[in-house]
Design a protein around this nucleic acid. Structure first.
Lengths: 165, 165
DNA sequence: TTAAAGATAGACGCAGGATATATCTTTTGC
DNA sequence: GCAAAAGATATATCCTGCGTCTATCTTTAA
């Protein structure tokens, strides 16, 4: 049982934006920080923008910021968005189900209940919560500058500082 | 987020064995019932036998039964066995972690806690629980004979009745 | 008008899991 | 003791979802 890297990076993108607020964050910053390809974060930012979690802005000086207060975005709702339908087992998806026990199977129900417990636990956690220890996180993200946005601009393709995330 | 079919069938194998108890169950019965290849259930029965959940017996008249009372086997422990290490995100596996936030990241901790909630929910469910409504389950598994083991023997390769599971 | 930024499209690779086949060993019944 | 029935074991192959990459377009500010 594993979450997709897509979900993981989506949450880290929001966490990063919360840390940078009220300044804007750029896609390349996050991609460089993780040492991964731009395209991943591009897709994530695009989706989160469409769904009203990020305010994106094109062009020079652009970037994105949280579209809502971080206390108003829960980890659970992001996972519901990025992880696709949560079908732990085949029989949770009626159209393709082949199990004749459907409707009377208590295993299926127990699994659904456990999934609810999982999501409920994450519904109680917000982006503000996972960005609360700002100092410690920023120290890891950009060891040289603690609380302000990195001043030096970076080119598109060249990985400049690779501070990791 | 999805469980493997392997885990799903492992639980159904135990559920089936509980329903059949104290009679023995054969691998082919379950494979035929699901309409899947023998090899899947073979691997599962072998593992569950090795780990002390099933008593297996070779040869004519062989098959397997639960090695413990069904109340003493929880769904959670089976999942821990069959699902491999539960690493929801990359950073939960220290050897391959690349995230510099490791140790201070509250997202990582929140995910671990949610996973605990998931497993705790399933630790409270036993094989006895998911086989409790015996009548309803058996009616679906073998519509013609309700409470006794199907009398007709079935050959190895030929799918005979395909009652589904 | 140029550089910096997000938006969009599409191709490709690949690991894990699902599926299948073949054969060996053990046990019982005749 | 032989044959049939059952689990044990090994190996091969397919396939889907996810991750990865490249290229190009559009918007915006200096």
């Amino acid at each position: 049982m594993r979450l997709t890297a897509f979900s993981n990076y989506a949450l880290r993108t929001l966490q990063f934006a919360a840390l940078r607020a009220p300044a804007r964050t750029r896609i390349d910053e996050i991609a460089d920080a993780h040492g991964i390809n731009r395209a991943h974060i591009v897709k994530i930012v695009h989706l989160l923008g469409r769904e009203g979690y990020l305010e994106t802005r094109r062009g020079r000086g652009g970037g994105f910021t949280l579209a809502r207060p971080p206390e108003a975005i829960s980890v659970g709702e992001i996972l519901r968005l990025t992880e696709g339908p949560f079908e732990l087992v085949e029989c949770h998806h009626a159209p393709t189900n082949t199990c004749p026990l459907i409707g009377v199977c208590r295993l299926s129900k127990a699994l659904a209940k456990a999934l609810d417990a999982f999501l409920a636990s994450l519904d109680a956690v917000t982006i503000a919560d996972i960005a609360a220890n700002r100092g410690a996180l920023l120290a890891r993200l950009s060891p040289e500058s603690d609380a302000d946005q990195a001043p030096e601009p970076s080119g598109r393709g060249a990985v400049v500082h690779h501070s990791g995330l």
